[in-house]
């Protein structure tokens, strides 16, 4: 495997042996990567081969070894294997029994790294697996202890409980939030890369194309602090590309926006869907509404010669969805369906009636034909007659079907009983 070292220019130099490492340290290198990579060509997360250690960068010049050890005891974590004094604070390393950097392991490792960083209130920008850290110069604590990732799982338990404060926005409106606007106004030298990726995700999530986002962020890069080492446009291009190469379109991490802007920020995603078959319950609900609206538009009773398939096509849904909606409506008693054969070669006619409509129509028609003035007793009369008709129909045809009741009611509302009979 390969590691990388660098001097203050951060240009990565690959290292494969301890002898080279020693030589390069002598030559004045300042940084190294604690984790190892597949090739000498790429110092990127997806090129990682071995995960060797968890580490944090505490940015507090007043922090001491005993502070770190106390915090470890509080959090029920093992003490670090190595604590190094830096100009601005401390670097702490927990050596882990090396883990192959598979996608899964890397995901877990990254979560742990972030959780560890948060638990020590350390610098979140340092919490990436391919990070450069300072070659230890002033070692304050060194213990050859080796741990496993599972020794740190306790950190993940309360991860979900971490408080999110204020400033809620709907994810779609992310770009209008003051915290994001602050980032769009330009950032300092040390957060450019993270800010660029975070903003690229925000743009992508809000529906910007790759080209549009790139234009926005190149313009944004001109607003950034130039610093001693200006952020190159090619780096912006690479970062935007990596955000657009992600398989899923994800909103930016709220924690990053908080960290980079220093402002409270969180959002809710309203489009979130339940597990299992994504989108299915929603589709059913929509279909149900559409279907009921169609029947109501036809006056509460829809009589059609169209097949279920054709009806589904008219509603713009699949036949399967419509079938399950109809079945559910029948089961809950909100809908009655009756089918009439029209005669040789003329196909069938189907009538869908909404139950509440049936009652209302009943009372209305009762009024019209002067039976009880639309009162409850009038409705009951119609139903009783309908039942009588059904029995008669069943006598003649031998058919006994619940759906015929609705059909009889419909006829009785239009014609006198004796004609129906």
């Amino acid at each position: 495997a390969w590691c990388f070292v660098a001097n203050k220019s951060f240009r990565p130099l690959p290292v494969r042996t301890f002898a080279t490492l020693e030589k390069l340290i002598d030559a004045g290198m300042i940084y190294f990567t604690p984790n190892a990579f597949f090739s000498r060509k790429a110092k990127t997360t997806d090129a990682l081969r071995w995960l060797n250690a968890l580490y944090i960068d505490i940015d507090d010049p007043a922090a001491t070894v005993s502070d770190v050890l106390d915090r470890c005891a509080e959090l029920n974590l093992p003490p670090p294997s190595l604590i190094v004094k830096t100009q601005h604070g401390l670097h702490c390393y927990w050596k882990i029994k090396r883990v192959r950097a598979t996608e899964r392991a890397l995901k877990l490792y990254s979560r742990l790294l972030r959780a560890l960083t948060k638990a020590f209130d350390a610098d979140l920008r340092a919490a990436t697996a391919e990070r450069f850290l300072r070659i230890p110069r002033v070692i304050l604590h060194f213990d050859r202890a080796e741990y496993e990732l599972k020794d740190f799982f306790s950190l993940l338990e309360d991860e979900t409980l971490s408080a999110q404060s204020g400033g809620r926005v709907v994810a779609r409106g992310i770009l209008d939030h003051p915290a994001v606007k602050k980032l769009l106004g330009g950032v300092s030298e040390h957060s450019r890369n993270h800010a660029c990726f975070t903003l690229a995700r925000a743009f992508r999530y809000c529906g910007y194309s790759y080209a549009e986002t790139l234009q926005e962020l190149l313009r944004w890069n001109r607003r950034n602090d130039r610093g001693s080492d200006p952020h190159r446009d090619s780096e912006v291009r690479a970062t935007v590309k990596s955000a657009y190469n992600e398989k899923q379109i994800r909103p930016p991490a709220a924690s990053w926006i908080r960290e980079l802007s220093g402002m409270p920020f969180s959002y809710r995603i309203f489009e979130k869907r339940g597990g299992g078959k994504p989108g299915r319950p929603r589709k059913i609900e929509e279909t149900r509404e559409k279907f009921i609206a169609t029947i109501q538009a036809a006056g509460g009773t829809l009589t059609t010669c169209d097949s279920r398939k054709k009806l589904a096509a008219q509603l713009g849904v699949s036949e399967r969805t419509l079938n399950s909606v109809v079945a559910a409506l029948i089961a809950e008693g909100s809908l009655t369906v009756s089918t009439t054969r029209l005669g040789r070669g003329k196909g069938t006619e189907t009538t869908y009636t909404i139950a509440s409509q049936l009652e209302a129509a009943c009372s209305e028609s009762c009024k019209a034909i002067g039976r009880g003035g639309g009162s409850e007793s009038g409705m009951r009369q119609v139903l009783e007659d309908a039942i009588e008709c059904c029995f008669k129909f069943s006598d003649v045809t031998g058919r006994n079907h619940g759906k015929d009741l609705a059909f009889s009611v419909k006829l009785l509302l239009r014609y006198r009983k004796k004609y129906v009979l």
């Binding site: 495997a1 590691c3 290292v15 494969r16 042996t17 301890f18 002898a19 490492l21 020693e22 340290i25 002598d26 190294f32 604690p34 984790n35 190892a36 081969r49 071995w50 060797n52 250690a53 294997s81 190595l82 190094v84 390393y93 050596k95 090396r98 070659i135 230890p136 110069r137 002033v138 070692i139 060194f142 050859r144």
Partner: peptide
Amino acid sequence: SPQEKALEALRFLLDGSLTE
């Protein structure tokens, strides 16, 4: 020397990833 100590710590961290 600090240099040797640094190398010793790095050897420990990078053990198995780099070769002799």
